[in-house]
Amino acid sequence: MIVDVKNLVKRYDKLVALDHLNLFVEEGEIFGLLGPNGSGKTTAINCILSLLKYDKGTIEIFGKPMSQDAYDIKRNIGIIMQNVAVFDELTVYENISYFCSLYIKDKSEVKRLTQEAIEFVSLEDFTKFHPKKLSGGLLRRLNIACGIAHKPKLIILDEPTVAVDPQSRNKILEGIKKLNADGATIIYTSHYMEEVEQLCSRISIIDKGKVLATGTKDELKAMISLGEKITVEAYNLQEEQLDDLSKLTNVSSLEYSDNCLEIKSKKGKNNLIDVLDYLQKNEINFGKIYTQMPTLNDVFLEITGKELRD
């Protein structure tokens, strides 16, 4: 096991930021920590990195207790913070080289790794630029390069795609997959469920400092009572018709507004054919049809009663 967090408690006066948090991360996986803003993701990461004092619990990384001066552990960790952490006075190359040199003693090795990191984040054309001259996306890529240049075994990314354009976001996500493919274990925190769903092999959903559920995305979705969701663009549905539709065998719930009919199926069931059949038989005009399997947002909604982005 790469990371093992047991019963972690962190309080800020009366506010309990982490409430007996338990996590474990296996070697080679991309582990997602999913939760809304303020749920305790960054606090958990800061405790794991021994930056924050915590009130109770144990943290082990690579099988050893983590502490402020556990340099042998730290040497194998790379961190990409939520806030960009680079020196404005140094160029792209100098920044990556400086942070790499905090981990690697050999000068030529630092040079080689710096070059590799630059290529990895595709910043070859910007090596002599100062951070202030970079766009938001490029700056995020520089931030990532500074965190991974020393080739760590464990990489922690704390919301690395906040305020990033879609193109840079895709590049970042592809990069993370590549790092993982190259052997690094990844901890990825985000409140973007799509990213976590796309990227992570295992996910913990966290809210109010507690882990609510952990598993693969399929395991998490299997925990809830909902199945497929059908959205139909249907015109002028009457109360009676809505009532009929809600009585179809596998319908769990139904909503209709602005000519948009949304039907949620019961877990593991499908309603699409029955719904279309009903619309045709009753000569109801309809347009586009979408079907969607339950998302992590549905999981979060069912567990907490609120949307993930609340």
């Binding site: 930056l51 340099y71 042998d72 961190i79 952490a85 942070f99 981990y103």
Partner: peptide, 9 residues
């Protein structure tokens, strides 16, 4: 930057 430096060995 301080946080990043503190994580380094």
């Amino acid at each position: 930057i301080g946080a990043r430096i503190n994580v380094a060995p």
